[in-house]
Design a binder for these strands. Structure first.
Lengths: 342, 342
DNA sequence: AACATCAATTAAACCGGTTTAATGTTATAG
DNA sequence: CTATAACATTAAACCGGTTTAATTGATGTT
């Protein structure tokens, strides 16, 4: 690969001039510009990205940090990613997906600063190593979701109002007459599970009803969403724990619930009502019956996070902001007024 | 941010020694190692990624290049991405998603080498600017999908056998007695559309039937998949073009077909049989009726592409390889034997 | 003619690491 | 007790850009 030196020599000018022709940061005469560009083309010269980065201390790359383990992108992440990418596209930024295993990163040979101008953190957890170890000198960051207690005030984040949404969903079911509402929450480690649980509890308390803790489940990390939904229902059934409605963490979990219902000869919504969080796919309407679910606006979460991040990158003195993205409960046909059987 | 120089001074050793402690490329004594690491921690020192990259000419980043315009990741891309990420994770690589607008990249200030060790190209097109302009000095590349004619022999790629699969799908419908089979193909620009069309034609020719070209449609770039499916059916219906089966490019297009069928009071599969390519979501079974579709194994496509790329990065003299990933037609309930109505 | 102004250019320093070649130090063999 | 190998360390060069400060030469002013 040709270097700036090669081009400078061939064009009979100094490195600085070639640099100016390419960066346009200072003027160069018409003739020189023309000659340099011609020769650069001949030599197939392109400025070296990393050399430039080293000199100007800007990568024009933003990072996306997944939580620790080898996690997969979900439907929700996909929408979110598309939002982030959209903003990147508009602003000439690239996106670096950071999936390095803890083992890899802990080896001293692999320790290094992150090669980005700023980072978006996904799926914050209660004790989030990624966030705890952040220091002043790290690049700007924006979290999607609520950061763990204690870090809320010092970190920018973008989130839904998960507590209010959970309360709304639960109230909806309570008003339909349901009293035994199974809550298939996401993993306890994630901060969002706590918020949703609080909203769920609140809905009961508002109606002066008692919360049945044994109906609040948390997903284990090692189980798939589909199985989580399926097995939970099967288990509740075999333990003869009564419930007439289910709130699930995602449409995938709801799918598991649907399948379990079929297996158990239960009808949705006649025997069980179902509502899901996090429906970003276009398929909820295709469920039989169409699934009522909460649209979280993941794409907007991604867009907004990226926008805020770029702002901070340009000027890191802008105040820490917290941005709430509107979510929306979409009622379809998976819920029904509860009336005791026979 | 502290530099290697700061650490070296504070520890009373040379830059080279600090470098050796961190890179482990050459030995350092126990005491020196200990002292250097201690001081590095105190100063919160981490080796600068860009400086290191410039020196060793290795980024440990692989790139993912989307086609030109601001395109979104689909369900298919998601599965593929997860495959790529998995391999990255295992091998300590980061993934850079490159979505820069052509306008951005064409400005001289933004011209530069790509900041990656190798690249994966998605959705190759017949006249693909990204691929045409590649030169010997560009980093190693792997294409997912068939490269345009002329570049096939010089580029590594991973693909399904789209021709054979399309032939299989079409034959399946022909054997069910269908003769007017609408083919809602993907955009004509993409190489895959050509391959599938060839397979479709072949199935007819094998049976010594004539291909009705007016039943072969190609998606326009500016229309959503859902609308493409919906409008195509509506249009065929209003033009009174007879057809009894539809092959769609993806489950999203199929969804549009389902919705049009409802609008037109047509029953699937009684009036229209439907088969989709590219079903990577878990929802095809949730369609009413469950959608027969071709599982393309996108995750494996991604994994294999990443694997081949890493191989080439380690040794770019390995021969150019073409890898075919198995796809599979999954029969569900959206197709039926064709018998003329009353 | 002398001086100030301005644009284009350059040599050299710099960004923060790695690597080479040389040096000093200690252990091992003859 | 050397000669030699093996090891740890360092100074200096290098990677390929950008930037600073100085220089040149052309233009304009009085």
């Amino acid at each position: 690969m040709a270097t700036i030196e090669d081009v400078a020599k061939a064009a009979g000018v100094s490195k600085g001039t070639v640099s100016n022709v390419f960066s346009k940061k200072r003027p160069a005469s018409k003739e020189v510009t023309k000659r340099v560009i011609e020769i650069a083309n001949q030599l197939n010269y392109k400025p070296n990205y990393w050399a430039r980065t080293l000199a100007i201390k800007e990568t024009r790359i933003i990072g996306l940090k997944m939580p620790g383990e080898n996690s997969k992108f979900s439907q929700f992440h996909l929408a979110l990613l598309n939002g982030v990418l959209h903003v990147c596209y508009e602003n000439g930024y690239r996106l670096l997906v950071n999936t390095l295993s803890p083992e890899f990163q802990n080896q001293i040979q692999n320790v290094s600063s992150d090669p980005v101008d700023g980072e978006i953190y996904l799926d914050p957890e209660q004790n989030d190593g990624r966030l705890d170890h952040r220091t002043q000198s790290d690049p700007p960051a924006v979290v999607i979701g609520r950061p763990p207690r204690g870090l809320e005030s010092s970190l920018c984040y973008v989130d839904n109002d998960n507590e209010a949404t959970a309360e709304q969903v639960t109230s909806y079911l309570l008003e339909l007459g349901h009293r035994n509402i199974l809550f298939l929450n996401t993993s306890k480690a994630r901060t969002v599970s706590e918020d949703r649980k609080r909203g769920y509890d609140k809905a009961f308390i508002n109606k002066e009803l008692e919360v049945q803790q044994e109906l609040s489940l948390f997903k284990q990390i090692d189980i798939s969403s589909l199985l989580y939904g399926y097995q939970s229902i099967k288990e509740m059934d075999s333990k003869r724990v009564p419930f007439s409605a289910v709130i699930t963490d995602s449409d995938k979990v709801a799918l598991g619930v649907y399948r379990a219902a079929i297996d158990l000869g239960l009808s949705i919504p006649n025997d069980i009502s179902v509502v899901a969080f996090s429906d970003e796919s276009i398929v909820a309407p295709e469920f039989a019956p169409p699934l009522s679910s909460v649209y979280l606006n993941a794409e907007e979460l991604g867009r907004e996070a990226a926008r805020i991040l770029l702002e901070r990158i340009q000027d890191n003195r802008v105040p820490v902001t917290h941005h709430i993205i509107q979510s929306k409960l979409v009622i379809r046909e998976s819920c029904r007024r509860w009336q005791p059987h026979d």
